[in-house]
Amino acid sequence: MKPVHPVKRWFKHAWSHPRHVKALFPQHSLKQIELTIAQSERHHAGEIRVVIESGLPTYAILRGLTPRQRAIHLFGHFNIWDTEHNNGVLIYLLLADHDVEIVADRGIHRHVGDAGWQQICQQMEGMFRSEQFEAGVVYGIQAIGEQLAAHFPPEAVPRNELSNRVLIL
């Protein structure tokens, strides 16, 4: 993320509202994303969670909270780290900052690494710049699913440890 003057950033976040999320991700898009997560998780033993946030609260802006720091906080807050094989992955979108973050638990992160996650984020951000919001998230889920399938094949008795529902904050 490029450095932005705190007042300018505050205005971007103050004017951002959850209805902006709904404009970019209408109900049919959210359902498609949830379906894509469910389909992906049939091919691996990992867990994928998508969180979309329109903007940060004022206190977070004043503290200089970065999208990465927020994603890490949400990764812990929603217990994405608490999977049987340490293979939970969070896709976090912060719309006001036009930022995508992927936070992965240590089980899968050791196989993919920062460069692998960054490559997926960059592809998603490119799709978002072309206003392909649903397709960008679907691409991210599929790319993460390929990594999870390569390192965590499906189990004989499938489990769904995390909700597939897109969480909008």
Rank of each mutant, 00 (worst) to 15 (best):
141 I>L: 12
157 V>N: 11
145 G>D: 01
44 H>M: 06
10 W>L: 00
81 W>T: 06
88 G>N: 02
132 Q>K: 15
82 D>M: 09
129 R>M: 15
124 M>I: 15
3 P>L: 07
112 V>L: 13
116 G>T: 12
150 A>E: 11
38 A>Y: 09
58 T>V: 10
104 A>Y: 08
68 R>S: 11
164 N>L: 03
110 R>E: 15
87 N>K: 06
102 I>E: 01
125 E>L: 14
168 I>V: 13
29 S>G: 04
98 H>K: 11
105 D>S: 04
127 M>H: 14
100 V>I: 12
161 E>G: 02
118 Q>H: 15
127 M>P: 12
77 H>I: 09
32 Q>W: 09
31 K>L: 12
128 F>L: 13
3 P>H: 07
39 Q>K: 13
48 I>D: 01
121 C>V: 15
163 S>Y: 03
155 E>T: 11
84 E>W: 06
30 L>E: 07
78 F>H: 02
8 K>G: 01
74 L>A: 04
156 A>R: 06
10 W>C: 00
87 N>S: 07
106 R>S: 14
64 G>M: 02
142 Q>D: 13
84 E>Q: 12
106 R>V: 13
129 R>C: 15
99 D>A: 11
60 A>P: 05
106 R>P: 08
136 G>N: 08
83 T>Q: 00
168 I>W: 05
163 S>R: 02
132 Q>E: 12
18 P>E: 04
145 G>M: 02
60 A>K: 08
121 C>F: 14
78 F>D: 04
119 Q>D: 15
43 H>Q: 15
74 L>Y: 05
142 Q>G: 10
96 A>Q: 00
4 V>I: 09
65 L>V: 08
166 V>D: 00
37 I>F: 03
163 S>C: 01
100 V>F: 03
37 I>E: 02
140 G>C: 10
96 A>F: 00
117 W>G: 11
13 H>R: 03
90 L>I: 05
91 I>M: 12
73 H>G: 06
22 K>A: 11
91 I>Y: 07
157 V>W: 12
113 G>Q: 11
114 D>K: 15
132 Q>N: 13
99 D>M: 07
107 G>S: 08
64 G>S: 04
17 H>T: 08
15 W>M: 08
162 L>S: 01
150 A>V: 07
78 F>A: 05
14 A>D: 02
22 K>H: 12
47 E>F: 07
136 G>C: 12
8 K>D: 00
111 H>W: 14
31 K>V: 09
103 V>Q: 06
57 P>G: 03
